[in-house]
Design a protein around this nucleic acid. Structure first.
Lengths: 150, 150
DNA sequence: TATTGTTATACTCTATAACTATA
DNA sequence: TATAGTTATAGAGTATAACAATA
């Protein structure tokens, strides 16, 4: 049991470093599409989850309500999203991705998949099998925190 | 072979989504220490790699030289780094982490390891084994791109 | 001349506080 | 009154262009 705990702590340390390395690398490549990190994440959210309220988007993205209003302004100005009125509540503004916005999300995602695929190709067959074998566990890991805000 | 390619493409797609999810979650937690992403990454670089030139740091972090000069100003102002002269070249300024800067890096890293450890704890024993088993492959994956700038 | 770093200036993105409209 | 969203204003962080100092 002592041994198991020790190896688990070491695993957390190693996994953290792997994540830190990947995050650092992605941070530089993220600006490519001309979208800020929050803009890209919000657009992805709209593209996948449909129209959503400004207040909810602000909370989900961890920014202030005015910041989300201004991000909405920019997305609308660039033709990536539109504002819609809510049928239920006259105070509510729903933000919705346009076709151009969804296309932008797709393009960014496709580019990322290509880069990740290239990395997988660079691994040996046995390493690739290890990664693929661990995918279900990693998907669970990612989902564990996602439930907090999604 | 067709089957292998198909499963590899699927793996790239799934791994990309896992990474996107984790990145999105970390992005919100990143501001905790009061450091910008570039500031945190630069400080980590100094803490691990020792004193480095402004020009090199700018290139490694993917920002302009003036941006790195100004980041150096902020780090120095906050007592996290100091400017040193180069013995070889009078034009060069070396940036070096202070003890306080190194302590900040450690604190941030420790907090992250704690969060990742909590995620690992939430997995089943078999899932955890899968993740741990795939760690060497993931470390290789992370190193594949790291060589570009480190 | 070329290179290193800084200064000057402007733009993007964010936050807090104050405001308007609807519930 | 409370809530949804916007407007006003200020600050952090970035880029490009122009500059100073050293090679």
């Amino acid at each position: 049991m002592e041994k198991a705990e020790a190896s688990e702590g070491d695993a957390a340390e190693r996994l953290t470093r792997v994540i830190e390395s990947i995050v650092r690398q992605l941070r530089q490549a993220a600006a490519e599409g001309g979208l800020s990190p929050t803009a890209a994440s919000t657009l992805l959210r709209l593209s996948e989850g449909g129209p959503q309220r400004v207040t909810d988007l602000a909370r989900l993205e961890g920014v202030s309500q005015p910041a989300m209003t201004q991000l909405a302004d920019r997305l609308v100005k660039e033709g990536l999203a539109v504002r819609r009125a809510s049928e239920d509540d006259g105070r509510v503004v729903l933000l919705d991705a346009t076709a151009a916005g969804a296309a932008t999300v797709d393009a960014r995602h496709t580019a990322r998949v290509g880069r990740v695929g290239a990395l997988l190709d660079a691994l040996s067959a046995s390493e690739r099998e290890q990664v693929i074998g661990a995918l279900p566990a990693f998907e669970r890991l990612a989902a564990l925190r996602a439930h907090r805000d999604c």
